[in-house]
Amino acid sequence: MKLLYFAHLRTKIGTAEEQLDLPPGIGDVAALLEFLKGRGPKFADALGNRKAVRVAVNQTYVGWDHPLKPGDEVAIFPPVTGG
């Protein structure tokens, strides 16, 4: 799957985009975020406060229990501040 990070999550994590083979046992958004937080302090810092994280799968907002499949485009970003 393709992972995208935006705004201050992008700057904290230090990358805008990466390819990830969906790890075994990671079935939904919540599990993916837990997996990513376990990758190191930069990820734990960026994703630690769940209230400050929004997720879109294939460019549509989803909840934490949204199922994931290989090939999904998963975007992780902070609450939006446009307008």
Binding site: A7, A56, Y61, A75, F77, P78, V80, T81, G82, G83
Partner: peptide, 8 residues
């Protein structure tokens, strides 16, 4: 737009 459109 201010709460949904993905701008930062």
């Amino acid at each position: 737009l201010k709460t949904k459109a993905p701008f930062w």
